[in-house]
Nucleic acid binder design. Structure first.
Length: 284
DNA sequence: ATTAATGTTCAGAA
DNA sequence: TTTCTGAACATTAA
């Protein structure tokens, strides 16, 4: 489930444990399931990273990026069930990787950060982060030049005739939005998920930009969404709180909290569930 | 036993 | 060229 708000929460949760510290050791955790996907392979990755100091911990779209004093960075894609932790994990058998950081000052102590992943679909790379960023569109939320402006949103919408909900999931168009937040954003923007992206007016693109910002900031404030299966946890292994604020996602048949009249319906687009209110979001 | 679930990426068809 | 579909990855819960 980690989408932009959950990854942002992970990054904030591990930042102090890593920034300015030296990597004493990278360890692969013994686990009975399939091995974590690493690039390069573990031995090479550990050799290149050991002894490096972490200069920054940041988020790029749905990825955690750990910059090292060399030009390398760890780029972690949690995909469906990956977590970055500094506290006890939900279980031991799905721990995948451990970064043992030297303690502050002259102490011999180490401070560990773990990557935990139940389904094991996550990927950890050690590479130049630029090469991965090149495959992504502008950031849905951020503060630098990568962030999409109002007019960028309009231009991005013009690029495809696919339904706007499907377009929002295309990381080459907008980076950071996933299935859950796409429904919430479109509801906030009062736009039909089935409307072709290319038919958006400038005014609608503007609403989309504003809704994206509001929803994602709000979700970050609540430390992300922990769905029914309880998989997503913050770095301290605590649940997020935004699931209680969802207006349409996974709320099929409930009364729309905005118009108080319509019912939330579920449709399938690109093999994923979309939730929306026909009354206040229209038919496209 | 079957189905669906937050993501990404690829192959192949329409 | 664009868009759509399905599969693959692996696990768990309803």
């Amino acid at each position: 489930m980690p989408e932009l708000p959950e990854v942002e929460t992970m990054v904030r949760g591990i930042r102090d444990a890593m920034t300015g510290r030296t990597l004493r050791e990278l360890r692969q955790c013994p686990c009975s399931c399939r091995p974590l996907t690493l690039s390069p392979l573990f031995a090479e990755m550990a050799r290149r990273a050991k002894g490096q100091t972490v200069t920054a911990v940041r988020r790029v779209a749905k990825r955690v990026v750990i910059d090292l004093s060399s030009s390398d960075s760890f780029v972690i894609e949690p995909r469906m069930t990956g977590l970055m932790l500094i506290a006890d994990p939900p279980d031991r058998e799905h721990l995948r990787l451990e970064w043992r950081m030297a303690g502050g000052g002259r102490t011999r102590q180490t401070k560990s950060v773990w990557f935990w992943d139940r389904r094991g679909l996550g990927v950890v790379r050690l590479c130049d982060p630029e090469e991965l960023a090149r495959r992504l569109g502008g950031e849905a939320l951020g503060k630098d030049a990568l962030l999409l402006t109002d007019s960028d949103w309009y231009e991005v919408c013009q690029r495809t005739a696919r339904p706007i909900k499907v377009a929002l999931l295309d990381q080459k168009l907008v980076a950071g939005i996933g299935n859950l937040y796409a429904s919430e954003i479109l509801h906030e923007a009062r736009l039909s998920p089935v409307r072709p992206a290319s038919k958006m007016t400038r005014e609608q693109a503007c609403r989309l930009q504003a809704a994206t910002r509001r929803i994602l900031l709000d979700a970050i404030q609540h430390e992300g969404s922990t769905l029914g299966d309880g998989t997503y946890r913050n770095a301290l292994n605590q649940s997020g709180g935004y699931q209680n604020a969802h207006r349409v996602y996974d709320r099929e048949n409930e009364t729309c909290p905005t118009c108080q009249r319509g019912r939330v319906v579920r449709i399938v687009q690109a093999q994923r569930s979309t939730f929306f209110c026909r009354r206040c979001q229209g038919r496209g």
